[in-house]
């Protein structure tokens, strides 16, 4: 009985999330996308009038925030099947922005307006990858180093820590998002940011702590002295502070938190793999312990620098 309910809820949620994609498929315009930085391709549901679509006078195109600045077309070419038209622009487009296209007189309708933008899912995925690799919290933002050096001795602990951190981060980031957008901003209490965020983080950590104590005592024991430090760990508190700076919406917040947590997990895992090997190595006495760990982390950081500039979408 319970299971059936859950299934319904999950299905409804999925439908709700995917609704924009289905809704978009209706109407005259089926698909629109950037081909390159000077071309946009528009596909219609049926063949359209060649005279109308190839006349560049019939188009008004602008970037969403600048409706008064028209973008000039150099030509519009209808494909042989009469269903898709490719628009060529004089100047390179800023494909990160949403473009609004209006066609006049198409299929007897005075105005047909639609927008072209990069896929939103791709953008969300971009935030995830960015927080995970390009702006990895440990190796390029230098956060959470205490826990990073403290618990990256064994792979098992590292994995457990990483997963718990990710959980705490996602939950606390979502809560902080709600507090930030519905309490701090409307009442002009932005200066209470730090107190509110750290309170929410502590609350989440306390909850995770209580749950973990019951569910997985072994993992709970391996936290050891770091339990107190987790309550106020900079890698967790940094996520709400970053999202407060960037005006993210709730999905973007989720992706950022997930990416940050995943990045932390990745860093811990990589470091612990090296640490396990290093125990067998012959390290000079002065470098034993933390110094060599820092050098290794530095090498990782340099490797992660290679991810910068990575753009998938």
């Amino acid at each position: 009985m319970n299971l059936a309910y859950t299934r319904y809820i999950v299905l409804t949620a999925l439908l709700f999330l995917l609704a924009p994609i289905f809704a978009r498929a209706e109407g005259l315009v089926v698909n629109q996308k950037f081909i390159s930085d000077k071309e946009i391709q528009v596909t219609f549901s049926g063949p359209v009038d060649k005279a109308v679509t190839e006349n560049i006078q019939n188009y008004t195109i602008y970037e969403e925030p600048d409706p008064d600045i028209r973008l000039e077309l150099s030509s519009a070419v209808l494909a042989d099947d009469g269903k898709s038209v490719t628009l060529f622009f004089k100047e390179p487009l800023n494909t990160a922005k949403t473009h609004v296209i209006t066609v006049h007189g198409l299929a007897g309708i005075d105005k047909t307006t639609f927008t072209v933008s990069k896929s939103y899912l791709g953008y969300l995925f971009g935030i995830l990858i960015s927080a995970l690799l390009i702006n990895n919290f440990v190796f390029t933002k230098y956060l959470g180093l205490c826990v990073f050096f403290g618990t990256s001795k064994k792979k098992d602990t590292a994995k457990g820590m990483g997963v718990v951190f990710t959980m705490v981060m996602v939950v606390s980031a979502l809560m902080s998002w709600f507090f930030y957008n519905f309490i701090l901003i409307p009442f002009d209490l932005n200066f209470l940011q730090i107190v509110v965020f750290i309170g929410l983080v502590s609350l989440t950590v306390q909850a995770v702590d209580t749950i973990l104590r019951k569910v997985n005592p072994i993992l709970f024991n391996s936290f050891g002295v770091y339990l107190v430090l987790v309550i106020a760990n900079c890698v967790i508190i940094a996520v709400p502070l970053i999202l407060a700076n960037n005006n993210y919406n709730v999905f973007e917040t989720f992706m950022l938190a997930l990416g940050a947590g995943g990045g932390f997990l990745l860093a811990l895992y990589l470091m612990s793999s090296v640490s396990e090997r290093m125990q067998l190595a012959n390290i000079p006495k002065t470098f034993k312990g933390l110094p060599i760990a820092f050098i290794v982390a530095g090498q990782f950081a340099m490797a992660f620098l290679g991810f910068s500039g990575l753009q998938l979408f």
């Binding site: 190796f139 390029t140 230098y142 470098f287 933390l290 110094p291 060599i292 760990a293 820092f294 050098i295 982390a297 530095g298 950081a301 340099m302 992660f304 620098l305």
Partner: peptide
């Protein structure tokens, strides 16, 4: 460069 911080502190 950002990553040098680790090396300097370690050394």
């Amino acid at each position: 460069l950002p990553s040098a911080g680790f090396f300097v502190v370690g050394l």
